[in-house]
Design a protein around this nucleic acid. Structure first.
Lengths: 143, 143
DNA sequence: ATCTAGTTTAAAATCATTCTAAAGAGCCTT
DNA sequence: AAGGCTCTTTAGAATGATTTTAAACTAGAT
């Protein structure tokens, strides 16, 4: 039974980081508090930096990138691949897919159950499937 | 009835470019001859530049990038999204999916029929589906 | 309180890709 | 085949996201 409710928010996120194998530094806890609060959204290094600034904090650029990568590595975030311009991270790590509208660089979650893969090929010899990503590219009808 | 076999290879690719709405310049024809010969493979700006050099030709870096983008725009190539490090292009523009092994940055085609999407969500209001990309991330079993 | 390995920092470095301005080449018209 | 107009190519500079660097700092164990 989790004692989440008895902990200060800070302690709660520090705990989460420890469980993920990450030393809970001041900046990692601050970023965790922003990204791992259960809300599902998509962030970039840039948008996260903005959030940090808005929260009255400061974390160096390099650390923002490192943290995003470490969180992803640790399974706390998921990297979404839709273009090559910059990295997108999803705070929802559950299995689900995406709509992507290139015109506005808009990414929208698709609930897991809305895509049914009736058949998948076997992974090549000596390999196993780690993840299946479905990206549905959409465009506005009058274009 | 195509007269493909009566044309010189050069004329054949020039024709292909014209049909795609691209002026058949020397460098575009050269690149078309390398990429649009029917063989299915994946290239990067870098690997293509190598091929060009190996063929004893020279095309400036900017033009390689421009051509890759224009061919993609024209539907002669397809951009594959698996990571954010650099762009990958597929000479196979038929509808098909991919296995991606991050360890070796290896991309493998999956025949169209090996993936069956039994159910797809409707596109958000005012939008239509342009393409559905399935990327199956794989890893070697002993890792 | 002390120590040490892991972290953060600001700034420099990297690297793929795009942009720029000038030189060159299709191609239509004569 | 010459002229001309626009689209292309070129080399090099510029951009921008991300990584690296080396030095200053901190979490957590002793």
């Amino acid at each position: 039974m989790t004692q989440k409710n008895r902990m200060t928010p800070k302690a709660h996120f520090a705990e989460k980081l420890r469980l993920a194998g990450l030393r809970p530094t001041r900046q990692r806890v601050a970023i965790a508090a922003l990204l791992l609060d259960g809300r599902h959204r998509h962030v970039t290094a840039d948008s996260l930096t903005e959030e940090i600034t808005t929260a009255g904090l400061h974390v160096s650029g390099g650390t923002v990138y490192n943290t995003l990568n470490q969180f992803t590595e640790a399974g706390l975030l998921r990297r979404v691949m839709v273009h090559n311009d910059y990295s997108l991270f999803d705070t929802n790590t559950d299995h689900h897919h995406h709509f992507y509208e290139a015109e506005n660089d808009q990414l929208v979650d698709i609930p897991h159950d809305d895509v049914i893969l009736a058949q998948l090929p076997a992974a090549p010899d000596g390999h196993e499937i780690k993840a299946v990503d479905v990206v549905i590219h959409i465009q506005s009808k009058n274009s």
